[in-house]
């Protein structure tokens, strides 16, 4: 009986793993579904072959941990659309590439936590996927078609977005976390948070989550750098001390259990006391002035 139960458990686990693996295949469009959809290109690139698609632009995606991608060029009701669906190593990588690619979003796509709509583009990150749909006209019709395609492609991943657990609570809000950027190397830093690039020179293989807060009275950047070991922390702190320049901002840091917390404040300490308390409470570490 015990063995039967064990076998059943093993089968169940294998089945679950198989389903998860199948689920990570690249979603595709069924061209036969709609007559007014004309697919002009549908190609898959994996690993370093991304070079073939975006040449020098591939570096950034490879730095974040690129697995494979699907490129679809299509025409739908006279609208030319370009779909780039990237499958990254994991949800963190997918969110990371989304976080450095989005810019001045007009709004979010309904139902998609990590999404960004601008005139000519819809972007979203869900699970290990980063999706970009570019249209040529900037019209409402084109965006409507883009949203429909996103739902068609990614519908099964709708509820599968990355959250940031263990982060400080109020006065931090969802809005703050939705502005978070994840940086995993020099190119991500150059593209996503260039103002800190000089401090991270010489550091590799890190993951930094940075939350820029730009409110009327509270202006600061909060960073969580994970798994830093050896003298890397000292080098980073030394870089900050040496390269801050005219000192228009004040730096604080705390060494928490699994992360180095960095806070660059452009406001006076009094204005951000509530935030600092929240950071210290969540991290059980005290911020020190640099």
């Amino acid at each position: 009986m015990r063995y039967t139960f064990a076998l059943f458990t093993l089968l169940f686990l294998l089945l679950t793993v198989a389903q998860v693996i199948a689920q990570t295949d690249l979603p595709d469009l069924d061209a036969k579904e709609k007559k007014d959809v004309k697919i002009e290109r549908n190609e898959v690139y994996s690993g370093n072959s991304l070079w073939g698609y975006i040449n020098g632009g591939a570096d950034l995606y490879l730095e974040y941990g690129f697995d494979k991608m699907r490129v679809i060029d299509l025409t739908i009701e006279d609208e030319n659309l370009k779909i780039d669906l990237y499958k990254m190593e994991d949800a963190v990588s997918a969110y990371g590439i989304f976080s450095v690619n989005r810019f001045r979003c007009n709004e979010k796509a309904k139902g998609w936590m990590h999404s960004c709509i601008t005139g000519y583009q819809l972007q979203l990150a869900t699970g290990p996927f980063y999706l970009s749909i570019i249209n040529q006209s900037g019209s409402e019709k084109a965006m409507k078609a883009s949203l429909a395609l996103a739902n068609k492609l990614m519908g099964n991943w709708r509820d599968d977005y990355l959250q940031f657990p263990g982060m400080p609570g109020k006065p931090f809000t969802k809005m703050h976390y939705s502005n978070a950027k994840i940086i995993q190397g020099r190119l991500g830093m150059d593209n996503g948070f260039q103002m800190w690039a000089t401090y991270f020179e010489g550091l590799e293989n890190y993951t930094l989550m940075v939350i820029p807060v730009k409110e009327e009275e509270a202006r600061f950047n909060l960073g969580f750098l994970t798994e830093v070991k050896g003298d890397a922390v000292d080098i980073l702190i030394k870089n900050i001390k040496e390269k801050t320049g005219s000192a228009t901002s004040q730096w604080y840091f705390a060494k928490a259990d699994k992360a180095l917390i960095l806070l660059e404040s452009k406001s006076s300490i009094k204005k951000i006391t509530g935030y600092i308390k929240a950071i210290e409470a969540a991290s059980e570490a005290e911020l020190q002035e640099l």
Binding site: A91, V92, F164, G166, V228
Partner: peptide, 27 residues
């Protein structure tokens, strides 16, 4: 995230963030 971590990220964060190999801060 419930591991008594000061700041907790998803496990995949930790797997990818390996020790830095920076020597003397020189390129």
């Amino acid at each position: 995230a419930l591991g008594g971590l000061g700041i907790s990220f998803a496990p995949s964060f930790m797997g990818k963030s390996i020790a830095q190999e920076v020597k003397d801060g020189k390129e």
